[in-house]
Each structure stands twice: as C-alpha cells, then as structure tokens.
C-alpha cells in the first residue's frame, strides 16, 4: 500500500529540537570565539589566538554534523511547510555561523602576524565595538530563530548599518595613516583586513536573519531588491 503511514510526530519533533539545539550550541561556540577575539584585541595573547584557531575545527565539525542530521531528517520524515522551512533555515544558519567562526580564526592569524608591532589603539577600540555589535546581533538573531520572531530578525538586519559605518571610519583612518606615515603600511593593511572581516561578520548575521524571515513567513527575503521585482 502506498498510502502515507501516520507519521510519528513526536519523533519528528524530537529530532527538530535536537537540530535546533545543535544550531544554538554552534552559535555559542562562535560567540565564544568572538569574545576571545575581543580579549586579544585589547591585549594580544598568543596562546589565546592559537586557541581560537584550534577551536575553529570543532565549529566546522559541528556545522557538518548539523547539515548531515538535517539531510537524514528530511529523508526520514519528508517534512513540509514550517517543518521544512525550519530545517532548511537551520542548515543555512549553520553554514553562516561556521563562516563567522572562520573570520574569528582568520583575525587571530592576522593578529599573530602583528605580534611584534605597536598596536593602533583607536583602530582596535573600533574593532572591539564592531565585535560587540556583532555579538549582540548574533544573540538577537538566535533569539529570533528560536522564537520564530520575524520582527526581531528585521531589526537585527537594520543594525548591520552601524557595523558598516564603523568599518568605513576605520578604513578612512587607516588610509590617512598610511598616506602620512608610510612605515605603518604593513601594519595598517593587516588592520584593514581585520576590520573587513568584522564587517563581513555583520553581513553573515544579516544572511541568517534573512533566512529566519523566510522560515517564519514563508516569503523569501530578497534584501535590497523590491518585492515582486524580477530576478
């Protein structure tokens, strides 16, 4: 008989919750990486920078586990509607979180390159602010994910402008510095890179929020493109 067997909703619910918990776990790991990064921004600690890089492997591993679990869930339960949207969104969030982890590891590597150089205090304080904002955005995004809160996801996206503004400011400062004092070029270039990575973290969180909007509303969020506009 090809009639659909009554599906075990409780089993599906359990697996959906496990998937969600793993996404939250991943976000906690990424947040920890960002927090450590903030610390070494204030005071460079070689051991801690190496730790961030080492921990990134764990983040990567969990991201693949989430993806694999999601595929198994789809194959076994053939989810539809909000279940399906929730699973697809979880996969996307895991991918984005993993990329944020990569930026944290990347910045740690860059900082290790600069270990003997005098730190540019004002730039670092701006980068710390960007990381602060990113962490807040990420927390709020994960809250929106857990509570299916479209409005909160939309509010988080707005915050990305603040990160972009700081990045622009850092860029300007560093360009000015390099123009005036050519011996800072190598150092300032690393700093540009670090700042750019922080700006990308904001973009990744924006991507996460766009997915959450889709998860909740079922409508694909096309970012700056107007709704109904041709692709």
């Amino acid at each position: 008989m090809s009639t659909t067997p009554p599906r075990s909703r409780s089993q599906l619910d359990r697996e959906l919750m496990l998937l969600r918990d793993n996404v939250l776990r991943l976000s906690t790991m990424v947040d920890a990486a960002l927090q450590q990064l903030q610390q070494i921004n204030r005071q460079l600690d070689v051991a801690q920078a190496r730790q961030i890089i080492a921990d990134d492997t764990k983040i990567n591993r969990l991201r693949y586990k989430i993806e694999e679990d999601a595929y198994k869930l789809i194959a076994r339960h053939q989810p539809t509607a909000r279940d399906l949207r929730g699973i697809i969104t979880s996969i996307h969030i895991a991918v984005e979180l993993e990329r944020i982890g990569d930026y944290a590891a990347g910045n740690s590597r860059l900082l290790l390159e600069m270990v003997d150089e005098a730190l540019l205090i004002s730039t670092f304080s701006n980068i710390t602010r960007m990381l602060d904002l990113s962490r807040q955005m990420m927390r709020n995004a994960m809250n929106a994910y857990v509570h299916w809160d479209e409005e909160q996801a939309r509010r988080v996206i707005q915050r990305d402008n603040d990160i972009d503004a700081i990045d622009k400011q850092v860029y300007q400062e560093l360009i000015d510095l390099m123009t005036k004092q050519s011996h800072t070029i190598s150092h300032a270039t690393y700093m540009l890179w670090i700042s750019h990575n922080c700006e990308r973290i904001g973009d990744r969180i924006t991507n996460i929020c766009e997915r959450i909007i889709y998860m909740v509303s079922g409508e694909m969020y096309y970012g700056i493109r107007q709704k109904g506009e041709e692709l």
Binding site: T80, A81, G218
Partner: peptide, 17 residues
C-alpha cells in the same frame, strides 16, 4: 501548499499534526 500554506489547518495537516 507544501512549503507555505495560508491556512493553519492546512499547515497542521501537511506537517502531520
């Protein structure tokens, strides 16, 4: 209907609730 139904009763049915 299978990705984003408009009616919550449809949603409940297609998700096996």
């Amino acid at each position: 209907i299978f990705t984003n139904p408009s009616d919550s009763r449809t949603e409940d049915y297609v998700t096996g609730r």
